[in-house]
Structures are given as C-alpha cells and as structure tokens.
Design a protein around this nucleic acid. Structure first.
Lengths: 114, 114
DNA sequence: ACAATTGGTCAGAAAAACATGACTACCCAC
DNA sequence: GTGGGTAGTCATGTTTTTCTGACCAATTGT
C-alpha cells in the first residue's frame, strides 16, 4: 500500500491544514519570535529552553516550506543564516492576534468574563 | 506535587494554548460540525469516518472543559446528550474563519504544488 | 594546526497521541 | 428478559512526535 491516501479532511477545510502546520511543540513560539526579529538557528535554540536541534530544524524547515518563513544566507562577519517572516508570514500575524484575543479569556477562566 | 510545571510557554502566549487545544486529529472537524448543529455522540462518530469512540470522547471532553462546547442532557424521546457551541465557542468562529482565509492560499499556493 | 562557532543530519530511544475491541450502564420496546 | 439504541470507560497495542547524543562540514579565531 504505497498509496498514501491521507484523509485529514484538510482538502475541504483549509483551517485544518493551517492548524496542523502551526501545531507542534515549537512552531507557535518560533513564529512568535520571528515576528519580533529574524531568527538564527543557535540563538533560537537558546531562546527555546527544553528544545533540541532536531525539532527546531524540522520546525524551521516546515515553516519555510509553507512559505511562512524565508531562509537567507547572510554573507557577513560570522556568515550565518536568517529565518525571517515572509510576506505570507506577516499575513499570519493577524490570525495569530485573533487567536491570542480569544485564547486569553480561556486561560483566565469564565470568572474574568465581562 | 500539584504544581504542574507546564513549560509550553502558554502562560505568556494565549494563542499557543488555543492552538494546542484545537490541534489533534478530530477537534477541528468536531468544532466545524458543531458550528452547524448540536452534536450527538454516535451521530458524530458516524460523521467522522476513521474515528473511534475513545478519541472522539476525549476530544469532546477537552472542548467542553475549555468552555467551547456545552454538554446538555436532553430528556426526550431517546434521552440523549447534546454538545452545542457555547457562547465562547461561537466567539471562536471568527478566529476559525481567519484561519480558513489564510489557510486556503497556503494549500493552493505555488509552493505546495510541484 | 587546533579549537570554537556557525548550521545542520542521522539513528535510535522515549514519550505522547491515536486506534481497537471488550466491556459497562441506562433507557425503552417488545 | 431479550434486543437495540443511547453514551461512554478501560486495557492494550500501534503509530506519530519528540528527544538524545553522536556526527558532519564550512568558516573564523589563536
């Protein structure tokens, strides 16, 4: 059975694909940090306590492949790589803010309504 | 030790908690179906091909505990239980639409198709 | 030349999520 | 009191995700 017929339902629901993309242990935090400034691998690793190379590398790759982050080789003093929010990525900021706006009251509980 | 030292970063980022809540194989679909009409366990199970009691039960419980779905015992003909979107749950619809709006181009976009 | 920093890859282990099948309990019709 | 529908739980196994530690390769510093 090499017929990889994935049935996630994402075909009829784009939100699901996006949720799947943003889910995962590190991707939301990576996205959030990328909003503030371009990211560099080792620095990012240090900013995510408890993370590991592997997971972060995979997350960066997936976010890049999804067109949310753009990878750039910076030919400067230490010669490094930058992962910055792409145009599409910036489009996600609004959605993220919507999530935060809704998320906050959930965490603070029903008592804080009104 | 009741001090649940969760290190998800959700404390300083409500969006993360929400993403975590909505992630999972069935929760997005369940939410989506709940938008249309109140849900009933067995019926829902039939509407989610490939799913199973266990996973759906857990998903419903978590959505209920998060205050997104409201569980109601309906004392009628077959005596059943309804899971309907709560007030808060309806608030999520907008966020979900935002996800769909952004998600669609990602799926259909130039990067994903070869 | 050697070490450190850059940004990774790889195989294997551990942990988390998900699926399966058996079982429970309650109500109603027959 | 048997059978079907309601809504689940439980123990177990499988699959997916995440973590660990070793290794790699180019670039810069001493």
């Amino acid at each position: 059975m090499t017929t990889h017929t994935e049935q996630t339902g994402a075909e009829n629901c784009p939100a699901e694909g996006l949720l799947k993309l943003l889910s995962g242990k590190w991707k939301p935090q990576i996205f959030r940090l990328a909003v503030d400034a371009p990211l560099r691998f080792n620095s990012l690793l240090r900013q995510l306590p408890g993370s590991n190379k592997q997971s972060v590398a995979v997350a960066l790759k997936e976010l890049e492949e999804a067109g949310i982050l753009a990878k750039t080789v910076v030919r400067e003093k230490p010669l490094h790589i930058e992962y910055a929010l792409s145009e599409r990525g910036r489009g996600l900021i609004g959605v993220f803010l919507g999530l935060e706006g809704f998320g906050a009251p959930v965490i603070l509980g029903p008592l804080s309504m009104k």
